[in-house]
Design a binder for these strands. Structure first.
Lengths: 152, 152
DNA sequence: AGTTATTATTATCATTTGCAAGTAATTCCG
DNA sequence: CGGAATTACTTGCAAATGATAATAATAACT
């Protein structure tokens, strides 16, 4: 007999629920600007650090490589990003924001910041720092395990 | 000029990354049993509390209602759950696990528990409790805001 | 009771997604 | 050096998804 999982105390469940909810709320707000959640993730990543290659971006946005490949083509057609071959490695792409893309991230960013603040309401500065530290830790743990598994 | 968002300190990003990663790892392990992540979420929810209606389940699993409707039909065809009209409210469904469904959750649950443990490695019992409490708080904050918005 | 409103569920259709196979560039190694 | 293996990305295709419209049952109101 297996013990039942208590959902309100089950980390994957809590992560999924909080993550999906904040994504959905943000998403509805920025939809009028023509921004979808996957697009936003790409824009945000490129804002944060320009000149990404595709694989790197897929890893960081949690978007499947083939899905992302099509997404960046679409985003280039919309003049939000530029896709060119990397100089160093002719297989790789170099993805960068256009001015139009930059403008769009800057338009959407306040909504993201608003929802982050809203989510953290009632938590002290120290608690928030702890929460984020632990989430980074959690991700690091998973990442390390995945890497080890890939090794074998 | 808008200040750039620091990704490694941005809650929605941390939530998404951790949540997606743990979901993906778990998912690969249980795929051989014919369990997908959405299916797992439904099974887990019904394991936790039997006799759900569809809307309630959609809310709790973060699965879109129309998507979920098809999913539960498919799961009934696989004899994992039973779908019947609720006695109390003739509009609603009453969804329950079959013995086969129960067996399947019990097969998959150890993987879920394993990854939860893995994710929390290096955190003290007290820290874990704090993390979960804050995640519930975060979700509650978002939920409350959404409810208030819907009111107006 | 009859009409309207509300809530819950399903069907349809266009789009998105992800797996698997394919292509091209680069690196490895004899 | 040169062919095999690896890496980076793209594409084809079947399945999953989500928005919207339709349907059904119940509740609320007159």
């Amino acid at each position: 007999m297996v013990r039942r999982i208590e959902l309100s105390d089950f980390l994957p469940y809590l992560l999924n629920r909080a993550g999906m909810r904040i994504g959905a709320m943000f998403s509805r707000d920025v939809a009028p600007y023509g921004v979808t959640l996957p697009m936003w993730r790409v824009l945000l990543e490129l804002w944060h650090k320009d000149d990404h290659r595709l694989g790197e971006l897929a890893e960081r946005t949690s978007i499947d490589l083939s899905t992302l490949s099509r997404l960046v083509v679409a985003m280039q057609r919309k003049r939000l990003i530029v896709r060119r071959r990397s100089g160093e490695d002719g297989r790789a792409l170099s993805l960068t924001l256009t001015p139009k893309g930059l403008k769009l991230v800057e338009t959407a960013a306040p909504y993201a910041i608003y929802y982050e603040k809203l989510a953290m309401k009632g938590l002290s500065r120290a608690e928030v720092a702890e929460l984020k530290r632990m989430l980074r830790k959690v991700f690091g743990n998973l990442e390390r395990a995945a890497a080890q598994k890939a090794e074998n």
